[in-house]
């Protein structure tokens, strides 16, 4: 059996497969349908300092081989998370990470400070790439200075590993990656959703309440693989790949492009147990191809 354990910036994972923020709730929602302990890491829903109601319905539209969403970071806020959700998730025997978002660098920092207190949250993912909020979110992730300002503010107060989730909606994702690395990010995740739009031609109006949304699912995979490859060539810190992964072969493709680990997102909606099946599939593929460790394929084409 090939070794599929990975270490991302000090974060030890049983498998290289994580569940992507916003697609797996707090993990608990899936507890009947998959063994949570067998997942490399669970990244919980985007959390902000203050509670957010998110955008109006409709928030989703299915598109060819993908879906658009404009949820808009609906969550009950960092304090609620610490008080009510953390006690429920802290004993899940795998890594539970919090995805942190905000509308100013100070917001991000104050939210991260609260999460820093939680012993059983070994790392955070900084979301500087949500396309569905008016203030903050992706606004930070599309310029090197904006991205750097958020990471700098959080790095000053947060003591555990920081993974920064990058937006593909930029001219040069490698430039953003380098700026974030320079401010002390420990790892990067690529990519958040691609900004998209869909129109109901009979009703002559957009399918989503705020017109635009984030595109995810198999249709974004080639874009995501390209982003991972560009970023992995530009930085020294580990890269976590995501974007349309729904099979072990998809995950291996990302790893060959330079990802040390992967996240599964939209595919969780189709098969709630997919993250564990993909990990098993990676192991089987490595065995059948004569590899002893998953490390041997990371960055194979760089």
């Amino acid at each position: 059996m090939a070794d599929i354990k990975v270490n991302i910036a000090g974060l030890q994972m049983k498998t290289p497969v994580m569940t992507a923020s916003g697609t797996f709730g707090y993990g608990l929602e899936y507890a009947d349908l998959v063994n949570l302990e067998d997942i490399g890491a669970i990244i919980v829903k985007g959390t902000t300092l203050n509670a957010r109601q998110g955008n109006d319905y409709p928030r989703m539209a299915e598109t060819p081989s993908g879906m658009l969403n404009c949820v808009g970071l609906q969550n009950k806020g960092a304090e609620y998370f610490c008080k009510h959700i953390y006690p429920e998730v802290k004993d899940i025997k795998t890594n539970v990470l919090v995805n942190v978002s905000g509308s100013s660098p100070d917001d991000y920092a104050r939210c991260a400070e609260l999460i820093d207190e939680l012993d059983h949250i070994p790392a955070i993912e900084l979301n500087i790439s949500c396309p569905n909020v008016k203030q903050g979110g992706m606004a930070f992730g599309v310029t090197t200075s904006g991205a750097a300002s958020v990471v700098r503010a959080v790095r000053a107060v947060y003591h555990k590993p920081i993974i920064v989730k990058l937006s593909p909606n930029v001219t040069s994702i490698a430039d953003i990656a380098c700026a974030v690395q320079d401010e002390g990010a420990d790892a990067l995740s690529c990519i958040n959703t691609l900004m998209g739009m869909s129109i109901d031609i009979e009703k002559r109006r957009p399918r989503l309440s705020i017109s635009t949304g984030g595109l995810s699912g198999p249709c974004v995979k080639p874009v995501a693989v390209r982003c991972v490859w560009q970023v992995a060539r530009a930085v020294k810190i580990p890269v976590v790949g995501l974007g349309g992964i729904s099979s072990a072969e998809d995950a291996i493709e990302f790893m060959m492009a330079g990802a040390s680990a992967v996240q599964v997102g939209t595919a969780n909606f189709i098969d709630p147990a997919i993250s564990v099946k993909i990990a098993q599939g990676i192991s089987d593929w490595l065995d059948s191809h004569g590899y002893r460790s998953v490390q041997e394929i990371v960055g194979a084409i760089l």
């Binding site: 697609t23 319905y57 969403n69 909606f269």
Partner: peptide, 21 residues
């Protein structure tokens, strides 16, 4: 309402209620 996951994870199928979305 249109939904993706059916499990309370994707937050797409929300309805406005007296308790919020």
């Amino acid at each position: 309402n249109m939904m993706a996951c059916g499990l309370g994870a994707c937050l797409c199928c929300v309805e406005k209620t007296v308790k919020g979305n």
